[in-house]
Design a protein around this nucleic acid. Structure first.
Lengths: 203, 203, 203, 203
DNA sequence: GATGAATGAGTGTTCATTCAT
DNA sequence: CATGAATGAACACTCATTCAT
């Protein structure tokens, strides 16, 4: 019954997170039961509790972790770009890359907010607001720079995000469209949404 | 303890549907339990089963009913308009009106698909596809008529729907924006998304 | 699966209380599990929860109920007696009768206090204090009336109660001593404890 | 991670016993879990098992150890006294001293008998009987010597023990009564219980 | 129709215990 | 000796569902 040879806590934890994300993606948090999750990583339920002390808390750390990674990657990817239009293009690329590469994480990050406890919810929402604020700043700067004219900055921000995030509802990695083409199509759609004259500056 | 005075089967059913939609909206289908639902309409669990024979089947008829109503209203509202740009404007108005007036229904119609049984899922998805097809036809007709030029018709369809449906994620009836202004803003955003020169034709 | 013929909620509840008292008496509250308790009354665990919504709360109501009954019976039995020595005799009789007839209830009422939640504990302790106060008043009145002389009234109260309650630790209904003889022996011991000259006044 | 500096097996064992007694006193044996016990002595559960091979066996040795110490101390304290009344006084003093100084041990020694396995139970009960037999011999010898007259020797033995042991249910070291006064009060109560004319012979 | 009482399969969680490191 | 990770049996409690009344 003791610890099997060659077993390492951090690896197990990673496997659990991955399996959990997959299960929540497919069935939802409520419908994921810890017995099945344990089986996914070849553990008994009891052992799972060495790593996941509470189902509810686990969801919180899962979503928080996803959003923190998203924000970290965002900063890395957006570093060094200053021109608003270029920032827009770069952001569209980043967002689509992340949302297609990490489709499951993104999906549950949007869907399972209502399963969070109030305090978890607040923390996660704060991170989402930070992401939103980044988009908002791009649109505001472009507006100031006269690169586009928007009736309502806040609505435009939410509209752009809805436009892009919607991809995760239908995108299939093995589908008709290559990721590269998808990005180009949406860069154009995003520019048009803001009323920008075309003539693309590849980023 | 027979039927209380002044109670009517159809009324009870309506109350149950309404309460169920609200509970599913707030907590999700899995997290809704029939004891609480029964309590919402002042019924015991046993009595609820006179109206709702199965939780799972109930979800199916609920979502199907919502989508059928949506499609019915769509046909009514779109009747008589032929010019693609006008159809676009009209559709945006219709979609937003429905999605703000029936926010809870729309939300669960998008969120709870994964809780459906396979056969229920198929039926509901077929209805959604019909809705999508309607949008697709508008974009296709406008493209043919030379009113806009789209790189990828299917992507544009999904993009437009994401753009509009996203509203239900943040719209609050008592919020800053009137429904009328929201519609005008999104009519403009939709036109721009398709690359249409502005100059609005109110519908 | 539905309700069997001839089943009545109040009867079931009584049976559960009785079975629970017996199990707690033999094994303690912590060691009583609800599956076994359900089996004792020919119920499934699920059904038990129609009557016992929470194990912890159940213990509280159980102990509270026992003490309330004890106090009620005390008042009935002590009514009409005024002379302190006679009250002492009557109390000894009452206490022993109750503690031998309801041995299990009394035992758990003394043993399981630490398993109570803080608020339950307070309520039960208050009832015990009321019982104690009754004994205290007997000793005080006898002291005032010059029927006995005690160094420390409070210690004498606790001592008398310990003396009598200890019986429940060894008394067996089928043992060597009849209840009547037990009462007579303890009435004498109680009188001597208080330093009373003998010569019994039967009550 | 070998043995930390300055740590000694016997010390650890003592710490574990002390922590266990405290936990059992407060919550009961069933409610004490080994993780918490380990934490009390800054050990992991795994390490605890180097000292405590089995929870059940541990309880047995714990209680047996307590009673053996009690009996040992009893013999030491009672040595050399022969007059029954003096033995009574000495015993009362000893019992109270032990039961107030070692309140937690005494309490669990009385309460947790039912958590013992049958064979453990037998061993512990045998030790208790030895203690009881000592008291019995005092009362019997005093009876023979004509120092008191008891209706029922066995009942008197149990009554005296209940009287004295009850102290552990309410005694608080920081309470109103000094230990010395407590002893004097109970020496008098014990004498009266046996029907002894007063006139104390301090021991 | 409405109700209270029943059921059984499940759910999250705990815990004594084991053992490779 | 100490530890972290494993196990499996148990536990309190939930819930969709059924049915005599």
């Amino acid at each position: 019954m003791g610890r099997p040879a060659g077993v390492n806590g951090a690896d197990t934890m990673r496997a659990i997170r991955k399996a959990a994300i997959h299960r929540i993606y497919r069935f939802g948090y409520e419908a994921m039961n810890l017995r099945d999750l344990a089986a996914d990583v070849n553990l008994s339920v009891g052992s799972l509790y060495n790593h996941v002390p509470q189902k509810q808390a686990f969801l919180g750390t899962l979503l928080e972790g996803i959003l923190q990674e998203l924000l970290l990657d965002l900063q890395t990817q957006m570093a060094g770009v200053t021109d608003p239009t270029q920032r827009l293009d770069r952001f569209v690329r980043f967002h689509i890359e992340w949302h297609t590469a990490r489709q499951e994480e993104v999906f549950i990050g949007n869907m399972e907010l209502r399963s969070l406890s109030p305090s978890q919810y607040e923390r996660v929402i704060a991170l989402r607001k930070t992401y939103e604020a980044h988009v908002h700043s791009i649109l505001r700067d472009g507006q100031k720079a006269g690169q586009w004219t928007l009736d309502d900055l806040r609505v435009a921000t939410l509209a752009l995000l809805s436009l892009l995030t919607g991809i995760s509802n239908w995108y299939r990695p093995d589908g008709r469209l290559s990721q590269a083409r998808l990005i180009r199509l949406y860069q154009r759609l995003a520019r048009q949404l803001l009323g920008l004259p075309l003539r693309s500056t590849q980023t």
